[in-house]
Amino acid sequence: MKDFDRRWIFLAMGIVVVSLFTLEKPTEMPPSEYVQSYYDTIEALPEGSIVMLSADFDPASAAELLPTYQATIHHLLRRNIRVINVATWPAAPPYTRAGFDEIAPLYGKAYGTDWVELGFIPGDDVAMGSIGQSLRSAYATDDRDSTPIAELPLLDGIQDRMEGIEVLISMSAGYPGILEWIAQVGGRYEVPILTATTAVQTPDLFAYYPTQLSGFAGAATGATQYLQLVTVDMPVAVEGEPETLVDVKVNNQERMLIQAGAHMLILLLILVGNLLYFFTKGSR
């Protein structure tokens, strides 16, 4: 087995991914209790509430987190909830700008009153603690055009210690991310927290649900389930028109099929590897 050329495995994986990619078959998944709770927490917010949305990811994890991020922006703005955007990862703010520039006009939302971009802040956990302690001390200006934050009407009702912020949502790809938000802000200021995470980080979250974490959407599976909930009453996608949230949902459902194929191939490889191991054990 030592002489086995691993490029055959790469080829098999390539064939599985490409063939299922061309199949374009969306697959439905029933929402888990954790994703349902993520959705319900946002649904329960009164109109006009203020939510802090933290982008804690970069392009490496965008495939897992961006669909939930975009769907969350749609969900919040559609429900007339106002959003303060922050980021603890330096490569995240472009996703915030792109998302809001594209989605906010669909709901007639204006910068400064309905959403603000405060941008990346260095310092990891310390930065999170600082945001929780005093948003105005942590940020002097916004990230869009360096407007002093005192001139942003959305922040008028925000006080120190997270007063005025109803929910904190973290799109978390690792460190710093959701676990640090829980430690620095959630428990200390009693702010409900929601999160979407990568698959690697998802097992860490069960220990915090439902007391310190009100809901979570784990990886592409969670994204698919959440997108199904958010798009329940939305019109179907129209070919030739700009990408809508329904397109994002369908794309994600198609990707689940690819992920399923990849999972099954990996399990098959583990099985074959173990069979070979046991059958050749004696000869070694």
Partner: peptide, 26 residues
């Protein structure tokens, strides 16, 4: 930056498959 980093991360699918075949033994 986005396509470069996303490409690097996507390669994991191939390496995980190879590692699973070689390393995960009962």
């Amino acid at each position: 930056f986005k396509p470069l980093q996303a490409t690097m991360f996507s390669l994991l699918a191939f390496y995980i498959a190879s590692a699973a075949f070689r390393a995960f033994r009962a």
